[in-house]
């Protein structure tokens, strides 16, 4: 069986908010290491990779690997019924037809349980290689969110160019063009999460659809910083670390000149 108790139930709401615009269903894989999800959007342009490590839960028991296929829209509806301060317990049997969500208020004066039907989902797992990124940019997540929103007001595609001087975001649309350059500032007086850091072995430049990048920024409440990893002619990775728990990562295929 599987049973996991999460003290900060609000975290689940944030995780679901970060994926609900991209996928409508997914297999949550319960394993002794934790709860994970890998799923692509319907057009197979972007991929979500979530890991919530077992150590991040107050109680975690998983005897064997269990794929828990869930409709994300329905899951959002159910998790919305939990208070943001509630403790959430997720439970299911080894071959589950249903998953139980137990919500306990912080003061222990209200207990609710919801049961949700599972579904069989064809796995479309991809092997994402462990790679060394040519360019890694760490920046405040709110800054990245603002930047993607501003770029999307002008164009559909953003070209991201990373050099050791900084990261340049450029777009073109019917009304004109926009360029925003973010410079690294690691030696300033800012707190760590307010810094922009750039590590590169060689300059990288590629174009990406802003519609997807904007959806990824729904994960902003999960982390004060976001990390972009790029390799020439490969998908970009956009990672939000969840403190003491794991991550939400998005992979996005580039646009390439024919």
């Amino acid at each position: 069986m599987f049973e996991a108790r999460l003290l900060q139930g609000g975290l689940l709401k944030k995780v679901l908010d970060s994926i609900k615009d991209i996928i409508t269903e997914g297999n949550f894989d319960c394993s002794p290491n934790g709860l994970s999800l890998q799923a692509m959007d319907s057009s197979h342009v972007s991929l979500i990779d979530i890991l919530l490590e077992s150590e991040g839960f107050e109680h975690y028991r998983c005897d064997r690997n269990i794929p828990m296929g869930l409709n994300i829209t329905n899951l959002v509806k159910m998790i919305k019924c939990a208070g943001s301060e509630d403790i959430v317990t997720i439970k299911c049997e080894d071959k589950p037809d249903n998953v139980t969500f137990l919500f306990e208020s912080k003061d222990n004066d209200k207990i609710s349980d919801f049961e949700m039907k599972t579904m069989t989902i064809d796995d479309e797992h991809l092997l994402v290689p462990d790679q060394t990124y040519t360019a890694v940019v760490k920046m405040p997540s709110a800054e990245f969110q603002r930047l993607c929103r501003d770029m999307a007001a002008i164009g559909d595609t953003v070209n991201i160019s990373v050099t050791k001087e900084g990261v340049r975001f450029s777009t073109t649309g019917d009304m004109g063009t926009a360029n925003i350059t973010v410079r690294p500032n690691p030696s300033g007086d800012q707190k760590e999460e307010e810094r922009t850091e750039v590590q590169i072995t060689e300059p990288v430049s590629a174009g990406f659809a802003l519609r997807y990048l904007n959806s990824f920024t729904k994960a902003t409440p999960l982390s004060p910083t976001v990390t972009l990893g790029m390799v020439p002619n490969l998908p970009i990775v956009v990672e939000y670390k969840i403190a003491d728990m794991g991550h939400v990562r998005y992979y996005l295929a580039p646009k390439i000149e024919d």
């Binding site: 991809l126 092997l127 992979y251 646009k255 000149e257």
Partner: peptide, 14 residues
């Protein structure tokens, strides 16, 4: 113009 690639063009099946 640049065309949108799919993830399968880069990542294989496990």
């Amino acid at each position: 113009a640049a065309s949108q690639r799919r993830l399968e063009d880069f990542f294989g099946a496990p």
